[in-house]
């Protein structure tokens, strides 16, 4: 069961275009021309949700949970 996250997802259909512009609650952005693809990207969070370039260079997109190998 997925617990509520209390987070906001937003998708703007850009006026004058067919383009959807999505913003995840984490700040990641994405454009698409298909709402199904957009929601797949959105709900895939954090997969593929790199922060915008100017934000701090975060760790690589990780597909597995933090491993404890850094612990002494």
């Amino acid at each position: 069961m997925s617990a509520p996250t209390g987070e906001i997802y937003r998708i703007d259909w850009l006026p004058g275009t067919d383009v959807l512009h999505g913003t995840c609650h984490c700040g990641a952005e994405h454009t698409a021309q298909d709402p199904v693809e957009m929601w797949e990207w959105m709900l895939g969070h954090p997969e593929g949700h790199r922060l915008q370039p100017q934000s701090q260079p975060q760790s690589e997109p990780q597909s597995q949970p933090q491993s404890p190998e850094r612990a002494p």
């Binding site: 509520p4 998708i11 703007d12």
Partner: peptide, 12 residues
């Protein structure tokens, strides 16, 4: 007219 869509996940 284009729409904007927002989902408040926690509040449903």
């Amino acid at each position: 007219t284009p729409i904007t869509t927002e989902v408040d996940e926690g509040a449903g």
